[in-house]
Amino acid sequence: MKYALFLGCTVPVRALNYELAARKVGEKLGLEFLDIPEFSCCGFPVKSVDRMTFMLMAAENLSLAEEANLDICTLCSACSSVLTEVDKQVKENRALRNRINEDLSVTNRKYHGKIHVKHFVRILHEDVGLAKIKEMVKRPLSEFNFTAHYGCHYLKPSEVYGKFDEPENPRTLDELIRVTGAQSIPYEDKNECCGGGVLGVEEATALKIAALKLDHIKASGADALVLICPFCNIMYEGNQKKIEKQSETEFNLPVLYYPQVLGLALGIPPDELGFRMNRVKPREILSRFG
């Protein structure tokens, strides 16, 4: 199983632990990744400003993977959502496809709609499969209680994603957590947004949205929050100190990327999973791994 690995803007600069763990876990599970140096921003930040520019940016990236004859694997949920959306539109709307390709010709590129886009976690669930992962687990994480945060753009808009998981009652990440032997425990407002979408516009509002969820997770007694998007991570881990100050509450809640959790279960040494780059140190969890 080979994919073009689309890192986007945030992961390769601010989420090296996520990237590192995903590559290690991928290797262990037989996923091969091609890095395409010409990949650039997916287009997401331009969607609010000019729809055509946003579609052209997405289409340019899609065309690069198409040229390599590979489906795209994304790590960021926002990249996943916009690349999937533009791919769907190009496939379904011939007039739009022609218009996009006409404008895209300034970069000498063309996208024909021949590839697919999938989030890394969806690939684990659909293409690798729970059964194979279960077979590969060497160190079951049965002593841990985790809480899954799906975030918005891994699942939604569900019309674009073809409802591969149920947006109001998702299960894929919970199942992937459980297959490691850990518990995925319920908590209030599990499907709520991280607030990242308004961080640049209205920081106080964004932090309040994130604080509410940290509160709920803390109340659940979980050992850590497990997530799958670098922007959700910026909200819950990167801004955790700021939120603690704003809400006068101490959370000290470890935030782990799912591939880091899976990596531990697959027997990969914690050092190779980038835990040193986690800002809220998951000391208690790692102390069980000698």
Binding site: P157, G197, I209
Partner: peptide, 12 residues
Amino acid sequence: IWLCASCYTCEE
């Protein structure tokens, strides 16, 4: 109008 977080909760 710039405050929508684009979370799609309402859309669903």
